[in-house]
């Protein structure tokens, strides 16, 4: 069975996996990082979005072996102790969530957008969130939160 080593939220982690083990499964079941959610398992809903080498990807459509040697950031890697990441803070301030299931993916996706576009327009945010589905129909506040979060990040990650 293959062994994979990757830097997850700043810490090097090694594990033995099957070839078919998905990155989402490795994070959740091997490393216990259950903040990354699996909704559809068909790369449509975006609940499983994490950063691989700085880019947002759907971890349900990435093999753990494909991420061997990569730098991974999950929702657990954002806050600094009790201090939330500016994007998390913005989701709280703007009530950008209802049930919260889609939130980790929304936040990870939003940070990737903010890194590329520090002051995104509403249109830009809505286009970017194409791949993140919210079943509570809460997009309105999510869009506000992403715009505020991006501004609060001030061009930094």
């Amino acid at each position: 069975m293959p062994t994979v080593t990757m830097t997850v939220n700043g810490t090097q982690r090694t594990g033995t996996v099957e070839g078919r083990t998905l990155l989402a499964e490795f994070l959740r079941e091997h490393l216990g990082l259950t903040g990354t959610h699996v909704g559809c398992d068909t790369s449509q809903c975006g609940a499983c979005v994490v950063h691989v080498d700085g880019s947002s990807v759907k971890s349900c459509t990435c093999l753990a072996v494909q991420a061997d040697g990569a730098e991974i950031t999950t929702i657990e890697g954002l806050a600094n102790g009790a201090d939330l990441h500016p994007m998390q803070e913005a989701f709280r301030d703007h009530h950008g969530l209802q049930c919260g299931f889609c939130t980790p993916g929304m936040v990870m996706s939003a940070i990737d957008l903010a890194n590329r576009s520090p002051d995104p327009s509403e249109h830009e945010v809505r286009e970017w969130l194409e791949g993140n589905l919210c079943r509570c129909t809460g997009y309105h506040n999510i869009v506000k939160a992403v715009q505020a979060g991006a501004r609060a990040m001030g061009g930094g990650s």
């Binding site: 790369s43 975006g46 880019s55 947002s56 990807v57 759907k58 990435c62 996706s109 957008l113 194409e130």
Partner: peptide
């Protein structure tokens, strides 16, 4: 194509 995350991969 697809969405931002699909285009990233």
């Amino acid at each position: 194509i697809g969405d931002a995350q699909v285009r990233n991969a």
